[in-house]
């Protein structure tokens, strides 16, 4: 197995980073490019950008941000939010993103997963699942569907998804630890990797998640102290989870 990954997630709206990023050490907290560089230097293994205000009019803005990030970042990154068609995915990947993340668009039309995977390979397609009470939720976790979580993950994998980004809406934002039971239930039903998300409040929480998942998504725990990312990595390793050795920056 490749090494466990620690993935900071940045929410963006209209080309700016929003929500909860502490300003310590940053000239412009809203600049996705500066934050991306900062987290990359701090040892992020990968980044996820979620466009939380994606509207069709924002396409050009998002594409331009992706291109600017790609020009400075030397680690992989995934872009989600507002990917509704193969054309959307193509624009984002050709602008330099490694992967796109699909959420409600994949639920509405699961064939979109296959179409993007056929064009760019499964490794370029992440399916994000917001899960709670055994079912998939939409609209940022506010609306419950009737689709059960585990069978949807299995279908997404069968249709060509390369990874599942699994968020527990019960744990999200509570900082009391990941939903390990949910993570195990989904991951043991499929053979593609799983990113656990929702609930990171400490290094121990992240380490616990990384024992049952392939990667952990972190948000507020790093955004409150972006400079603390390197320290967080060391603490996770002290909890017994091996992360990648970081080579000194050139």
């Amino acid at each position: 197995m490749p090494l466990a990954r620690l993935i900071p997630c940045l929410d963006v709206a209209h080309g700016r980073v929003v929500k909860g990023v502490s300003f310590v050490g940053l000239r412009d907290v809203g600049d996705p490019v500066e934050l991306a560089t900062f987290y990359s230097a701090g040892g992020a293994d990968e980044l996820v950008f979620l466009d939380i205000a994606a509207t069709p009019n924002d396409t050009a803005t998002l594409t331009s941000v992706v291109a600017q990030v790609a020009d400075v970042l030397d680690i992989p990154f995934t872009v989600g939010g507002g990917v509704r068609s193969v054309d959307d995915a193509t624009r984002i990947i050709e602008s330099g993103a490694d992967r796109v993340s699909l959420n409600s668009a994949a639920l509405a039309d699961p064939s979109l997963i296959t179409a993007i995977a056929n064009r760019f390979g499964s490794q370029a397609v992440v399916v994000a699942i917001d899960a709670g009470d055994g079912v998939v939720h939409t609209h940022g976790g506010r609306v419950a569907t009737t689709t059960p979580t585990v069978p949807w993950a299995v279908e997404a994998a069968n249709r060509g998804a390369g990874e599942i980004l699994l968020t527990s809406i019960r744990q999200d934002g509570r900082r009391t630890g990941f939903d390990l039971e949910l993570t195990v239930a989904v991951r043991s039903a499929i053979s593609i990797p799983v990113i656990a998300s929702g609930g990171a409040g400490s290094a121990q929480h992240v380490a616990d998640a990384l024992r049952v998942a392939d990667a952990a998504l972190v948000a507020s725990i790093v955004h409150e102290n972006p400079a603390g990312l390197a320290g967080l990595r060391r603490e996770i390793e002290r909890c017994g989870v091996r992360l990648r050795p970081i080579k000194e920056n050139r």
């Binding site: 490749p2 499964s122 390369g162 593609i192 990797p193």
Partner: peptide
């Protein structure tokens, strides 16, 4: 035919 496919992430 590794345990997880795609094989994603950093490896030595």
């Amino acid at each position: 035919h590794t345990e997880r496919v795609p094989r994603l992430g950093w490896a030595l």
